[in-house]
Amino acid sequence: MRSRALIESLGRYANAAVEGLGRTGRFAADTGRAVVDVGTWAPVATFHARTLGVGSLPIASYIAMFTGVVLALLASYAFTRAVPLYFVGTLVQKTITMELAPVLTGLALAGRVGAKIAAELGTMKVTEQIDALETLTYDPFAYLVLPRVLAGTVMFPVVVGIAMVVGIGAGWLASVALLDLTTVEFFKGARLFFLGFDVEYGLVKSASFGAVVTFIGCREGMLARGGAEGVGQAATRTVVYSAVMILVLDAFWAVVWLLGRQT
């Protein structure tokens, strides 16, 4: 009897997981279908791009600046005398460009952008504003979801690109001001193994982060139930799922794009 209950709970969880997967797939399909409704999403896309992207520049730059400083000091601390100090520049450039700027910015924006979207859409959902839009023959996916997802996908690389510049610049300033390193030496190290691919890799990765974070925020908001508590749970789940998915995607891109690649 007890084992039967165990098997039932297992089936219930599996069913819920598949149901969630299917719901997510259906949500993605509806979002994709809304792309054709340009007249609905295009007018509001720039508004969301400004809100989600331009509004995130200060926090992204702030994070990148301190990351660059800490990375330069950490590199100088880690390098022994066997490693030339100009490799600080190499480490700062490679790490900021390929990993820290996209991931840290993505995690920060998961909290700022994802939670904001989930809260907005969740509130609209629990207050039946979305139902009202549907009554007015507005496609909520074209009006609410797609512009946000597009804004996130486009603006995340913009924010991350600026974060890269700010991070490397902060690393350079920290190296010159706090370490026994000249500008020439720092950029000698930074240029040593620099490839255009590094920037490409970071920007594409950040675009995927932007798409996932906004998509999760929209999904959780649109599925929110039960009033303010449901909205809060939706926001919380958005941040958690977004953070998890950012790390999963980070590993995914590393495996797909870096594994076996010869520089």
Binding site: R50, V158, M164, V165, A190
Partner: peptide, 30 residues
């Protein structure tokens, strides 16, 4: 308002493209 949004977003994207392109050119010493 919409035009202001368009301008700000466009300016931001342009600035980011210029910054990244300049950074790449500088780093590659092209």
């Amino acid at each position: 308002m919409k035009r202001a949004n368009d301008f700000v977003v466009g300016l931001t994207i342009l600035g980011a493209i210029v910054a990244i392109a300049a950074g790449i050119v500088f780093m590659k010493q092209a």
